[in-house]
Design a protein around this nucleic acid. Structure first.
Length: 496
RNA sequence: GCCCCCAUCGUCUAGUGGCCCAGGACGUGGCCCUCUCAAGGCCAAAACGGGGGUUCGAAACCCCCUGGGGGCACCA
């Protein structure tokens, strides 16, 4: 374990929509870093844009994080030494810092209207020029500016970006990134409504909250030097900056949609943790999967439980290149974690899905079922399709499944009656019954598979099910006999 | 149009100048096991984008090209 000083990391999402795996992965890395170093992981809500604010977003975000087991030490719900943790509640703080910048000449007041700015941009683009602020208010005298402010004229505060020279910003996994200051803009720091924009708010908060490591999306790379410039204007030491690469669609083409992602096989898989929960994914599988999208430990270890993730995680092993999401790998991990679950734990996890499907499944029934389904499901949700018949009264198979492969209805009906007799004579429906059924198949000139398949259809109503004899044992002899008889007579009618 | 980032099997990745005619995993194909479906076991196909350098020696370092991604708001 490296003896690094405690890190203070923060996840600072904007509550503007559904919470997706991109954010979850950033939060996970933040969390792992804090836990590994014995530091703190802070949740901060960046809600400075009232226009895009979505009141349900914060709820979903917290539910998702909790489900994934990513817990925060300070945040809007639990408070902390740097409260408040919602930017909309920190307005005066940003104004104070903005005023400081203006006073020291690193920022200036701008009175240009959005309309004029929009028009300006349009013309610049027409002339194939990069869209930049033209500097109209940059050289306004302080007294003149103050007069217009006092007169109540709407205004914003802009950063006075150096016109010459270069700025170098250092990203932990990419190294130094140097840009011409001339390519930067005089970005707006404070809007005319008095609220800060990200560029100011995030820098100020990271400073005030003593954040040591800033992990954020690589979408911030183009404005990274600007942020460094803001830190320099304040004369603050830089935190460790880490830009995480974006997720690409499963095809590898294009940035992952913020709405949904399409599986390679054509099915639609969700990118939202809460949907994944509904779809039967285990949080530990999702975490393991997410952790490996952009980080690796060595050339062969892929399975990480929470403690080993905390122990082994390392910023130095993050990859700078974008990663396509791979849902079949998620399925693989999910299967692995499901198979590792003890009977009663699997039963406990699967219970909500049965309830959701309207099936009345008792805990002890599910516990007996666990060994039968464990190896056959990739998601908890699949247990319904596989084993729902245990809890349904009507299991009669669809017509097109009958009478069974390579069988006539009469043969099938006869085979079922004979099997019924054997089952009736069998007490335990165990290995002895299996042996006599095999003997019966032999006698009837059927393959064991054909006979079992027929019985499977009768007992489960499905062509695919858990192991037949074990399933029958759980269903119980009376019900099994009843179902076998029912299908036998149905086939009888078919034959007639 | 301008700026920035990235580049190893289809996908996620290992690789920090010789251990690599490139390792692991998912997926794919084959075989085995088998009452279905899985799970499991074994095997296989599958990559250093191209061109120049540097070096005794490049997947690794530098440059160019190409390709991919991101950004250019009183959004974050």
């Amino acid at each position: 374990m490296p003896s690094t000083p405690p890190a203070r990391s923060r996840f600072a999402p904007s509550p503007t929509g559904r919470f997706h795996i991109g954010g979850a992965r950033t939060a996970l890395y933040d969390y792992l870093l804090a836990r590994q170093t014995g530091g703190q992981f802070i949740l901060r809500i960046e809600d400075t844009d009232q226009k895009r604010f979505d009141p349900s977003a914060e709820r979903e975000l917290m539910d998702s994080l909790r489900w994934l087991g990513i817990d925060w030490d300070e945040g809007p719900d639990i408070g902390g030494p740097c409260a408040p943790y919602r930017q909309s509640e920190r307005k005066p703080i940003y104004q104070r810092y903005a005023a400081d910048l203006v006073q020291r000449g690193h920022a200036y007041t701008c009175f240009c209207s959005s309309e004029r700015l929009a028009q300006m941009r349009q013309e610049q683009q027409k002339r194939k020029q990069p869209p930049r602020y033209d500097g109209t208010c940059r050289s306004l005298a302080t007294a003149e500016a103050q007069k217009r402010i006092d007169a109540g004229e709407p205004h914003v505060v802009r950063l006075r970006t150096p016109r010459q020279g270069k700025t170098t910003a250092v990203d932990l996994i990419r190294g130094p990134i140097t840009v011409e200051n001339a390519d930067l803009d005089d970005y707006i720091l404070l809007k005319s409504d008095g609220l800060a924009l990200y560029h100011l708010a995030a820098m100020v908060d990271d400073r005030e909250m003593a954040i040591t490591h800033v992990l954020r999306s690589s979408e911030w790379l183009p404005t990274f030097p600007l942020h460094v410039l803001i830190y320099q204007a304040f004369e603050w030491p830089q935190p460790v900056w880490v830009h995480l690469s974006v997720f690409l669609n499963p095809s590898g083409k294009g940035k992952m949609s913020k709405r949904h992602a399409v599986d390679g096989k054509g099915g639609v898989a969700s990118i939202f943790p809460l949907d994944m929960r509904a779809d039967g994914y285990l949080p530990e599988a999702v975490v393991n999967w997410l952790a490996l999208m952009g980080w690796s430990y060595d050339d062969h270890t892929e399975l990480f439980d929470r403690p080993s993730l905390i122990e082994k995680f390392s910023l130095a092993k993050l990859t700078p290149s974008p990663a396509a999401v791979n849902y079949s790998k998620l399925d693989h991990f999910n299967g692995l974690y499901i198979r590792a679950l003890p009977d009663d734990e699997l039963a406990r996890r699967v219970a909500p899905y049965f309830a959701q499907a309207g099936l009345k499944a008792e805990a002890d029934q599910l516990r007996r079922l666990a060994p039968l389904i464990r190896e056959r499901i990739r998601t908890l949700e699949e247990s319904i399709e596989l084993a729902g018949f245990f809890f349904r009264d009507d299991v009669s198979p669809a017509d097109d499944l009958l009478p069974g492969k390579d069988l006539t209805a009469r043969q099938a009906a006869q085979a079922l009656s004979r099997a019924q007799a054997l089952i009736g004579a069998s007490g335990a429906m165990d290995g002895a019954l299996e042996a006599s059924l095999r003997a019966l198949a032999d006698e009837l000139g059927l393959s064991a598979g054909a006979l079992f398949g027929l019985l499977r259809l009768a007992v489960t109503g499905q062509p695919v099910s858990p192991a037949l004899l074990e399933s029958m044992a759980i269903i119980g002899q009376p019900t099994v006999l009843q179902r076998v008889a029912a299908l036998a007579s149905r086939l009888e009618a078919f034959a007639a």
